[in-house]
């Protein structure tokens, strides 16, 4: 439900949410051609639960884009004018169209039409570079196609995208981590999981996935430690237990295969004494 009101949280329980406009005046030209040009600027304004007024400029396509800034309520009412028609007739349809494009791209990816999916994800990202679902989708498309260079570019982007670890994107986040690992991009997969762990320290599945990545990167002991962490959080975790057993066996096999024998303590001591 769209609300457009000047009441505050405290007064009515309704938050400010909508498009506002302001007029910016810029000077263009030099000398005799110098003139002042008025330009209407639209911003999307949303009051946070803590009562902060957060505003973000609207792009030419009426999508909120760019740096968010916090202003005080007094400044909002003094410098900005509500523009409900822009909100209802332009911004909401633009956002709906954007989501439809991403839905279509995801569906194309599911159907294996990976080049068409890339085209649609990029179309969405051209409207909103910070779109989390489209960013994941593009990265997954590149991983599906085995294009590590493109995947790396998107990975770097996602690792700094606010909202990438939000609960509503959890399935995409996990799928991306798994595909990074399967593509042999172990370092990126580890960074990906470590970032998630900083935000969700009790998620046993993250520890398990990180253990798999470490194992594939040849770091058996670190993998074992992560599995212990997973089992600490969920004792009944059959996959993790099986994995621990497997690593233990693998370690024993490795020791046997190297057939390395160290000199006994006595022999070593005698040698040192003789020096």
């Amino acid at each position: 439900m769209v609300t457009m009101t000047f009441d505050t949280h405290q007064q009515s329980g309704q938050a400010i949410k909508g498009v506002f406009s302001t007029v910016s005046v810029t000077v263009v030209g030099f000398g005799a051609t110098k003139r002042r040009v008025k330009q209407t600027v639209y911003v999307y304004v949303e009051e946070s639960p803590t009562g902060e007024i957060v505003c973000q400029p609207l792009s030419q396509q009426y999508v909120p884009l760019g740096r968010k800034r916090v202003i005080d309520k007094e400044k909002l009412f003094k410098s900005f004018i509500p523009a409900p028609d822009i909100y209802l007739e332009h911004m909401l349809p633009a956002l709906a169209s954007l989501e439809k494009t991403v839905d279509q791209a995801e569906s194309l990816r599911q159907d294996g039409a990976l080049f068409s999916a890339e085209f649609e994800f990029k179309n969405a990202l051209r409207l909103d570079e910070h779109h989390v679902r489209a960013s994941f989708g593009l990265g997954l498309t590149y991983l599906d196609r085995g294009e590590k260079e493109g995947a790396l570019l998107v990975f770097r982007r996602i690792s700094r995208l606010s909202g990438a670890t939000a609960p509503e994107h959890k399935h995409l986040f996990n799928e991306f981590g798994i595909k990074l690992r399967k593509a042999g991009m172990h370092r990126q997969a580890m960074i990906h999981y470590c970032k998630a762990l900083r935000l969700s320290r009790e998620d046993q599945n993250l520890y398990y996935n990180l253990a798999r990545t470490l194992y594939e990167a040849g770091r058996l002991r670190a993998a074992r430690r992560m599995l212990d962490e997973a089992l600490k959080r969920q004792r009944d975790f059959p996959e993790a237990r099986l994995f621990v057993d497997y690593i233990r066996e693998k370690s024993l096999e490795t020791i046997a295969a190297t057939s390395l024998e160290l000199p006994s303590f006595e022999a070593g001591a005698a040698k040192r004494g003789g020096e």
Partner: peptide
């Protein structure tokens, strides 16, 4: 630079596109 590269990549139009 990563942000810029991402922007360039997203706006890059390939021949097929």
């Amino acid at each position: 630079m990563d942000d810029l590269l991402f922007r360039q990549h997203v706006h890059q139009v390939h021949l097929g596109e």
